[in-house]
Amino acid sequence: MNSRIGYIAFNTFREAVRDRVLYNLVAFALLLSGAAILVGEISIDVERLVVVNLGLTAVSLFGVVIAIFIGIGLVSKEIDKRTLYTVLSRPVRRWEFVVGKFFGLTGTLVVNTFFMAVGVFLALLYVAHKFEKMDGWVLVALYFIVLQFLIVCALALFFSSFSTPLMSAVFTFALFVIGSLAEDLRGFAKITQGVAGGLATAIAYLVPNFSALNVISQVAHGDAIPGRLILYNSIYALLYSAMAISGAVLIFQRRNLK
């Protein structure tokens, strides 16, 4: 990464911290510690399952919300505050600005996820009194959640490169919902014939597949995640993010900022 991208990424991260984005960790900690203590009282024999399911679901949803609401403002905020012109008047290319913003936001989310992961493991230790070998797969689920953030950040940035913040949020959230139901969409495409079938198949492959990145239920039951799935999901997330960021760069390069 060149130093200009690094600076922009670091500043994006610093700005997110200054905007008190990491305050969500307090809500997360309260949610998880409350669940860990309460679940034994109100349910039967599912303490570990609840900690893993609730913890990872919260990590994922908190992160997606942050990715969307920070991501959609990354470009528009700089234009509104006219700081973009200051940045671009320096030897910083437009693509470096977009890529730097992307890395800054994903960096924020990785740090956020790290602290949440610590919280999940502490809650696990609280309910189970010890770590087990199968708890290691929770790390894989967390890694997949980070991959999910890469895609959401890239999409938010893509939409914000040409649309208003509100519409960018709507588009990104809609794609998150559709992508979470990607397997249903594929199933629908398979049973549909003709032009509609072709269109459904094209859409099914174009929208991000978040369902493959969601292995929360499996790791909650201690299932192993195949190495090939880890590899393919990593490649898929990187390629999809690269695709969306490239689209954002292409649009931003042509955008009239006057």
Binding site: V39, I42, S43, I44, V46, L49, V50, V52, N53, L54, T57, S60, L61, F176, V177, S180, L181, F210, S211, N214, I216, S217, A220
Partner: peptide, 14 residues
Amino acid sequence: SLGYTGLLADIYWT
């Protein structure tokens, strides 16, 4: 549930 079925199942079980 958008794929977060494990948590929903835990809620229904509770």
